[in-house]
C-alpha cells in the first residue's frame, strides 16, 4: 500500500487550513443579471470576493448571494455534479458550477458567469427548462417490451450487452450539451443532444423493443440529421459522455437499421 504521509491532499479544499501563505485570492465574478421585475434588459454586474481558488464556482455564487446580494438567483442542489441543476456558461463554456474549481478558470481575470443559451432566461442564471424536458419526453425515454408474459425473475442481459449503452445511462439531464449546440441555438425545434442521448440509451439496450419507433422519431426533419458534428456537446458534458459519438451511432442505425 501507499504509506500515508503528508501528501498533496493536505489542505485541499480547506479555507481554514493553517498554512503560512493564505490560500485566498481576490477574484472578480462578472455575472449576467436579468430580473423582469426590475428591468427589461439583462446587464453584467461585477462582484469581488476573497476566496480559496480550490473552491467551486458554486461556492463563489453562494458567497455572493449570502454575503453581498441576496437577489442573485440560480438553481443548485447536490453541489457535486450529480443532480444537474447548475449548468451555466462559465468563461464562455458550458459547465456545472459545482464541478468547476475556480483555480481552473484563470481567476486573475474576471470570471464570467451567464445562463446557458438557447432557453428563455427567467431570472439571472435560471432558464426555462420545459422545452428541454419536452424534447426528452418526445423520444419515449422508457423501456418498452412486447412480451405478453413478463418473466417472474429479472430479464437476463449479458455484461457485454449492458456495457453497450453504459455511456448514455450517465446522463443527468443538466442541458449543458443541448444548450452548447449551435443548431439548437438557431431555433428551438431541434431535439438536441440530450434527447438523442436518452434515445440512444434505449435503442441500444438489448431488452428494449421499440428501437424502430424511436429511430423514426429521430428521422424527423428536426431529428438527428440536423447535427453538424461540432462536438460542442461532447466538450460540454460534465459526465464525460461521448455525446457526438452517440448521435453518430443513432445516425448509423437509421441507415443500416441495425442496433
Amino acid at each position: 500500500m501507499a504509506t500515508p504521509t503528508l501528501d498533496k491532499a493536505d489542505g485541499a479544499g480547506a479555507p481554514e487550513a493553517g498554512f503560512a501563505d493564505s490560500p485566498y485570492i481576490t477574484a472578480t465574478f462578472r455575472i449576467r443579471r436579468f430580473n423582469s421585475e426590475v428591468s427589461a434588459e439583462a446587464v453584467w454586474e461585477d462582484f469581488q470576493l476573497e476566496i480559496d481558488p480550490k473552491e467551486r464556482v458554486l461556492d463563489a455564487l453562494h458567497k455572493i448571494k449570502w454575503d453581498q446580494d441576496g437577489t442573485l438567483t440560480f438553481r443548485r442542489s447536490c453541489a457535486h455534479g450529480i443532480c444537474g441543476s447548475d449548468a451555466m456558461r462559465i468563461n464562455g463554456k458550458n459547465r456545472l458550477a459545482c464541478k468547476t474549481l475556480i483555480k481552473d478558470l484563470s481567476p486573475e481575470k474576471p470570471i464570467t458567469v451567464e445562463p446557458i443559451k438557447g432557453l428563455t432566461v427567467l431570472k439571472d442564471l435560471v432558464v426555462d427548462m420545459e422545452p428541454f424536458f419536452q424534447a426528452y419526453r418526445d423520444v419515449m425515454p422508457f423501456l418498452i417490451t412486447k412480451d405478453t408474459n413478463e418473466p417472474t425473475r429479472e430479464r437476463l442481459q449479458t455484461a457485454e450487452d449492458r456495457e453497450r449503452f453504459d455511456d448514455t445511462t450517465k446522463c443527468i439531464l443538466c442541458a449543458a450539451c443541448t444548450s452548447s449546440c449551435p443548431v439548437f441555438w438557431n431555433d428551438g425545434q431541434y431535439f438536441g443532444p440530450a434527447a438523442i442521448v436518452n434515445a440512444h440509451r434505449f435503442i441500444f439496450d438489448s431488452r428494449d423493443e421499440a428501437g424502430e419507433q424511436r429511430l423514426e422519431i429521430l428521422n424527423d426533419k428536426d431529428g438527428v440529421w440536423r447535427c453538424r458534428t461540432t462536438f460542442n456537446c461532447t466538450d460540454a458534458c460534465p459526465r464525460g459522455i461521448e455525446v457526438t459519438k452517440a448521435i453518430q451511432e443513432v445516425k448509423r442505425a437509421l441507415i443500416t437499421r441495425r442496433f
Partner: peptide, 8 residues
C-alpha cells in the same frame, strides 16, 4: 422490469 440497468 422498468428498465433499470443493473450490473450483471
Amino acid at each position: 422490469k422498468m428498465g433499470l440497468p443493473f450490473n450483471r
